[in-house]
Write a protein that binds this DNA or RNA. Structure first.
Lengths: 141, 141
DNA sequence: AGCCTTGGTTTCATGTTGAAACCGTACGAC
DNA sequence: GTCGTACGGTTTCAACATGAAACCAAGGCT
């Protein structure tokens, strides 16, 4: 019996996250949820996703505690889901930087207060120093 | 003719990023690359991925300019690939926070300088204010 | 030459995806 | 009440992707 490889027993947190939201649709559903979508039909129209797939993904996201059923047929982000905000922002900024031609129209994530784009994410050490990948190492358990 | 839905024409940068690295394996390959893997066999042993799938994924990542061929049969991160660091960190921190039981062994990403974990990512507005998802809005083109 | 390792490609059974059809419930109009 | 209709799904089925294993080619060693 061949199944999709699962990463939910891996000791690497990145792998577990990928296992949770690492398919084509889940992160886009979460993005839409951040953007205000709550109903089945809203997600479906916004994403152009097949209904059976959307149904399965929503079920999965609810099972994982990323979305929870709301008032009537609604899907609302939980705290765990809200905590994906930096992931979405990181993907968005990377996409902006590398996947658009100059002047190509794109959607933007803006600060409500001043209408400006957000500051690019920075990775800092515990002491506040700015670090790059080369300044870090992974220690396996 | 049914094909996998593509997002590479979408106006949302998140969608384009998902199109580029949003499958089960690509981000884990990039994670391994950050962790020092460069050879086919290294990725394969580290990930437990089938060789044909790894081959296809590496080819795709090279085509997208995330990896580039190195000296002999090596795959090295490009600047575009290195720029995925915040994405990996965001996924890692989310996984750490929500996908491990207390005391469950996990790999850690540490600052080389002081051996401590990194500071949790923060999303800031242009003026430096800390913002949450609720403080932002998406403007479509 | 022969043997091993590395880096793949091919083959094929099985899983997953996507499009469309179908079903059940709630609502308003008639 | 019952007809139509919108919504929120589930079922069906063909096409595509994945995974395991077999196979192939190039280089290094003895």
């Amino acid at each position: 019996m061949v199944k999709r490889t699962r990463f939910d027993e891996e000791s690497c947190p990145v792998a577990r996250s990928v296992d949770a939201v690492g398919d084509w649709w889940s992160l886009l559903i979460v993005r839409d949820a951040f953007d205000g979508s709550r109903r089945f039909g809203e997600f479906q129209r916004s994403l152009g996703i097949a209904k059976n797939i959307l149904s399965a993904r929503l079920k999965g996201l609810v099972e994982q505690g990323i979305l929870e059923p709301g008032d009537q047929h609604e899907y609302v982000l939980t705290a765990k889901g809200e905590a994906l905000f930096p992931v979405i922002v990181a993907l968005r900024q990377w996409g902006e930087a590398f996947s658009f031609g100059p002047g190509e129209p794109r959607s933007e994530l803006l600060d409500r207060r001043d209408g400006k784009p957000l500051r690019p994410l920075e990775v800092h050490a515990a002491d506040g120093r700015l670090v790059t990948a080369a300044d870090t190492e992974v220690r396996k358990p």
